[in-house]
Computed example of a mutant assay.
Amino acid sequence: MKTYTTLISPAELRALSNPLIIECSFDLADTEAGERAYAAGHIPGAFYLHLDRDLCGDKTAADGSFRGRHPLPERETFAATLRRLGLPPGRQVVAYDRQGGPYGAHLWWMLRWLGHAEIAVLDGAWEGEMSTDVPTATPSDWQPGEPLVSQIDAATLLKKLGSVRLIDARAAERFRGEVEPLDKAAGHIPGASNRFFKDNLGADGRFKPVEQLRAELQPLAADVVVHQCGSGVTACHNLLAMAHAGLGDGLLYPGSWSEWSSDPRRPIAKG
């Protein structure tokens, strides 16, 4: 049976046998909107994971510093969540959201972080029946493996500024520092390039063809590419796009701008 590791179409999903489907729709301005949408109707058999409750850890570090708006949970905590959903080794997982894939891509990165390679994001809107039934899972004894992806922390990134390629997935006006609706300060990390995550999508809401993504993203490729955004979520959309285009795996800075801008000692650029 074919394994999907980046994107999967609705038709390909319908043809799968026993995938683990997870919806992770979310709205930063209305944090319960995704769960309400799931309750109103979702892909049959899909579970729901909430960004704040299920996919994030403590926002405050042991030393009292701010870790960002959506810091990663402990690996074992997230592994326990996946066991609760009945994940066994090798099972195809399909993540989706209703916002063009940023939250699905975040879940894609997180499963790879726990060593599970059989994870893909639904490309485009589901085309088929919907269900309001909440599935029942049989918990598994699944254990995480070696990470398939890498990350970088703020202190290490600060030391490496100027020697790594840094890509910011936020909208251009936030990147330039013209507006900042969510975080402590406006602007971006010095040396970063801007690639708004929605630029990975075509007018139909699906990811652009591989050849087009590769042509657009190739100029941003480098030996070391660090991806960030506001809080480490939409950056995963760029990570997914680059992986799908065959441009390799970069590093995620999970704390992203929300963590970076919380410390006035860190440098900020605008424009």
Rank of each mutant, 00 (worst) to 15 (best):
E35C: 12
T3N: 10
A62V: 04
R112H: 04
G177P: 03
D30P: 00
I43R: 01
A222P: 05
I152Q: 02
W108Y: 02
G248Q: 00
V224D: 13
I152W: 11
D223L: 03
I119H: 03
D168W: 10
A125M: 06
V226P: 00
L85H: 03
R83G: 04
H106S: 08
H42Q: 05
K198V: 12
F175M: 07
G232H: 13
E127C: 04
A62P: 01
V224I: 14
Y38I: 01
D123H: 05
H50C: 04
S258D: 13
P89M: 08
P254S: 13
K160V: 10
N200Q: 07
V134D: 14
A120H: 04
L107T: 07
D263T: 09
P144Y: 14
G68Y: 11
G145D: 07
G248P: 00
G90I: 02
A185R: 15
L7V: 02
S25F: 06
D199M: 08
Y253R: 10
T31E: 15
A155W: 10
R112G: 04
A215K: 10
S150H: 12
E129N: 03
D199S: 09
E178T: 11
C236V: 02
A120R: 01
E127A: 13
G271H: 13
F26L: 06
L157Y: 08
G248L: 02
M1N: 14
R170E: 09
F66T: 06
R83F: 10
Y4S: 05
L201W: 04
L49R: 06
G248E: 01
E127R: 08
T5C: 09
E74R: 15
H106W: 15
H188C: 00
A61N: 14
A37F: 02
R206K: 12
G145R: 08
T3F: 10
S25G: 05
H188S: 03
K198I: 12
L217E: 06
P267M: 09
P102A: 11
S65G: 11
S150E: 15
P88R: 08
Q151C: 14
A171S: 09
D249T: 15
I189C: 05
W109A: 08
T60E: 11
G86M: 02
E129S: 12
D168V: 05
L49N: 07
E178R: 12
A245G: 07
P219I: 12
P147C: 00
L107F: 13
D30L: 01
A37R: 13
L251G: 01
D168P: 10
L85N: 02
A95I: 11
W260S: 06
S231C: 05
C56I: 12
E76T: 14
R53S: 15
L49A: 09
Y38K: 01
A39W: 08
R174N: 06
T81V: 09
A221N: 12
T60S: 12
I8K: 07
E76H: 15
R165M: 12
D141G: 13
G86F: 00
Y103I: 04
R176F: 10
A192E: 07
N18H: 14
H70G: 10
G205K: 00
G124S: 09
W142D: 06
T6M: 00
W126I: 03
A33L: 12
G205D: 08
